[in-house]
Design a protein around this nucleic acid. Structure first.
Lengths: 242, 242
DNA sequence: TAGTGGTCTAGACCACTAG
DNA sequence: TAGTGGTCTAGACCACTAC
C-alpha cells in the first residue's frame, strides 16, 4: 500500500485507501449489494490501521457509495427506487409534501444523436442515442413530460422489450451496470409548446417549470440527459440550501 | 461534562460536546470571527479526550458553523458576502456560469404582516414585519424582482437609514446578530403579472421562475421570507444533486 | 520557535446483528 | 456467542501559521 502509492504528492493515507476502495467498486470487484471485507481484514490487507480504514469508509459512506450498518457490515450501495426518488426527484405538491410519480412510456427508439444531445452527453458526433419520451402522473394528475436521451453504447438493448419501469436508475444499474452517482439540474420557466400543452391538459403558452438534467456515473461521465417539464400549478420543485 | 449530560439516553460523548459547543455559539459566547479555544484546552475543560473534541468540531465544520485552519485555529464562521452568494444564490447565465447580482432597493417599510407572511415566518397574528422590495441586476440586465419580509421584532431599525446593501445576510448577522444557517426554496413557473413585467421589461404573461424561500437562523427559527421572480430567458437556477 | 489543527496508530470497550 | 461497526482514549508525529 504505502510502498505502491506514497511517494509523489504524499496524499494522506486514508485518502489513498478511500480512492483505492472506490476504484475497486467502480471496477466491479464488489457489486452493488455486496458486503466489503470487515475493517480489520481490510486494514491487514492494506497494511494500515483500522482507524485509517474507518476514516476512508466513512467518507465513502458520506458520498453514498457504501452503506454501513453496525453489527452487519459495510455494503456497496444498491440503487433502490426509494433512494433514486429521495435523491433525484424533488417535486412536491402545493402543500410541500413529497409526491411519488408513476410513469407511462410514450416512445422509445434509437437514432443518431442531435448536436444538442451529443454535446450534453459528451459523445462523439454521429453517436447513436436511445431517446425516450414519457409522461408521469403525480397525485392522479398528468403533471410531467420527460424526454430522455442516453448513449446506446452504454445501454445496448434498452427498451427492446416493451414498457420501461418507473425507476429508470434502478434499471440502469441492475441491467446495464451503470450507477448514477450525481446530477446537475438547470431550472427555467418556459411557455408550454403545443405538444406538451396537450399532454398536460393546459393551454399552449401556459408557464411550465423546465428541468434540464445531466446525470453522471461513478466515473463522472455524463450518461443521461433528461428534459422534464412540470405542470407548475399545484406542484413545485423543492431545493434545500444548507 | 459526563456527570451533567450522560444519564438519560446515553448519546455519544462527541455529540454532547458538539451540541454544547453549538449552543455556546448560538448564545454568543463566541461571536462570528472569534477563535474557539484550541482542541487540548477544550478537551481539558470538558474532561474528554482531544479525539472526541476533534470529532465534534469536524461535524460543526461540516455544518459550516466553524472554519478550521491548520496552524491557525478554529473560528466561528463569519457570514461573508461570498459565502452567502455561494450557498444561497444559485442563478447561472445561459452558459451555466454563476453570475453575481447587484441590487437596488425600491421600497422598505414596516406594517402589520399579512396572513401569508405570518404563516411563513411562524409569527403571531398582528405581528409587525419589515417589507422590502428590490430589483437585482445580473450581467447588466434587470433580471430579478424580490419581495422580502422579516419580523420587525428581530430587525428593529432595518431600513431606517437609506439604501440596503446587496448582501442582506451579512447585514443580518453584523447588525442584528441573526445568522442565516439554512433555507428551503420552492420553485415554480408563473406568468408575469403587470408590475413585475414592467420592472423586468417583458410582456405581461411571460414565463418567470418564481423562487419562494424561507430562511432559518441557527436555532432553526424562520426569520426571512423571500419571493423572487427571475427572468427565465438568459438565466437559470442551478441545483446540484449528489 | 511555539502552537495550531491534520494524520496515524494501537487498543479498549460498547451496541447491534446474526446464527 | 462470534463478529460487525461505533465510540473513546492516549500518544506520536507531521504540516502549516504566526511571531
Amino acid at each position: 500500500m504505502r510502498a505502491t502509492l506514497d511517494p509523489p504528492g504524499f496524499r494522506p493515507l486514508y485518502q489513498q485507501v478511500r480512492d483505492l476502495l472506490r476504484q475497486r467498486i467502480m471496477d466491479g470487484v464488489w457489486s452493488p449489494g455486496d458486503p466489503l471485507p470487515a475493517e480489520p481484514r481490510l486494514a491487514a490487507e492494506l497494511g494500515v490501521s483500522q482507524g485509517t480504514v474507518r476514516k476512508a469508509l466513512d467518507e465513502l459512506a458520506a458520498a453514498n457509495l457504501v452503506d454501513r450498518h453496525q453489527g452487519r457490515g459495510t455494503y456497496v450501495t444498491r440503487q433502490t427506487a426509494e433512494r433514486a426518488l429521495f435523491h433525484f426527484f424533488h417535486v412536491v405538491d402545493a402543500d410541500g409534501r413529497r409526491v411519488t410519480p408513476s410513469s407511462r412510456t410514450l416512445d422509445c427508439r434509437r437514432s443518431v444523436g442531435t448536436a444538442w444531445e451529443i454535446e450534453r452527453l459528451g459523445a462523439q458526433p454521429g453517436a447513436i442515442v436511445v431517446r425516450i419520451a414519457r409522461i408521469r402522473t403525480l397525485a392522479g394528475r398528468t403533471a410531467l413530460v420527460e424526454r430522455i436521451a442516453v448513449p446506446a453504447s452504454l445501454f445496448p438493448d434498452l427498451g427492446g422489450d416493451g414498457d420501461l419501469p418507473n425507476a429508470l436508475y434502478e434499471l440502469y444499474q441492475t441491467r446495464f451496470g451503470v450507477t448514477i452517482a450525481r446530477a446537475t439540474e438547470h431550472l427555467r420557466a418556459v411557455a408550454a409548446a403545443d405538444d406538451d400543452a396537450e399532454l398536460l391538459g393546459v393551454a399552449a403558452g401556459a408557464p411550465l417549470l423546465e428541468i434540464d438534467r445531466v446525470a453522471y456515473d461513478l466515473e463522472d461521465r455524463p450518461v443521461e440527459w433528461r428534459l422534464s417539464r412540470l405542470l407548475s400549478d399545484g406542484f413545485a420543485y423543492l431545493s434545500e440550501l444548507t
